[in-house]
Simulated assay, not measured.
Amino acid sequence: MKLNITDEFSRLRAVVLGRAKGNGPTPKLEEAYDPKSAKHIMEGTYPEEEDMIAEMEAVAQVFKKYDVEVFRPELIPDYNQIFSRDIGFVIEDKFCKSNILPDREREFEAIEHVWSQIPKANRIIFPEEAHVEGGDVMPHGDYIFVGTYRGEDYPDYITARTNTQAVDYLQKCFPNKTVKSFNLRKSNTIPEDNALHLDCCFQPIGHGRCIIHKNGFLEEEEYQWLVDYFGKDNCFEIDKMEMYFMNSNIFSISEDVIISERNFTRLNTWLRSKGYTVEEVPYFEISKQEGLLRCSTLPLIRD
Rank of each mutant, 00 (worst) to 15 (best):
K65N: 11
K65D: 10
K65M: 13
Y66R: 01
D67A: 13
V68F: 07
V68Q: 01
E69R: 14
E69K: 15
E69I: 13
E69N: 14
V70I: 09
V70M: 01
V70H: 03
F71Y: 15
F71E: 00
R72H: 15
R72F: 11
E74F: 10
E74Q: 13
L75T: 14
L75A: 09
I76P: 04
I76T: 08
P77V: 06
P77H: 06
D78N: 14
D78G: 00
Y79N: 03
Y79Q: 06
N80D: 15
N80T: 08
N80H: 12
N80K: 10
Q81G: 02
Q81M: 08
I82T: 00
F83H: 01
R85W: 07
R85G: 00
D86H: 10
D86A: 10
I87Q: 06
I87P: 07
I87R: 06
I87H: 04
I87D: 03
I87Y: 02
G88A: 15
G88P: 04
G88V: 05
F89C: 15
F89G: 11
I91P: 06
E92H: 14
E92I: 00
E92D: 15
E92K: 15
D93Q: 11
D93T: 08
F95N: 01
F95R: 01
F95E: 00
C96S: 06
C96Q: 03
K97S: 12
K97I: 14
K97H: 14
K97V: 13
S98W: 05
I100N: 10
L101R: 12
L101H: 14
P102T: 05
P102I: 02
D103C: 11
D103L: 13
R104C: 01
R104I: 02
R106I: 03
E107T: 08
E107S: 06
F108V: 05
F108H: 11
F108N: 10
E109W: 11
E109R: 09
E109N: 12
E109D: 14
A110R: 01
A110W: 09
E112Q: 14
E112S: 13
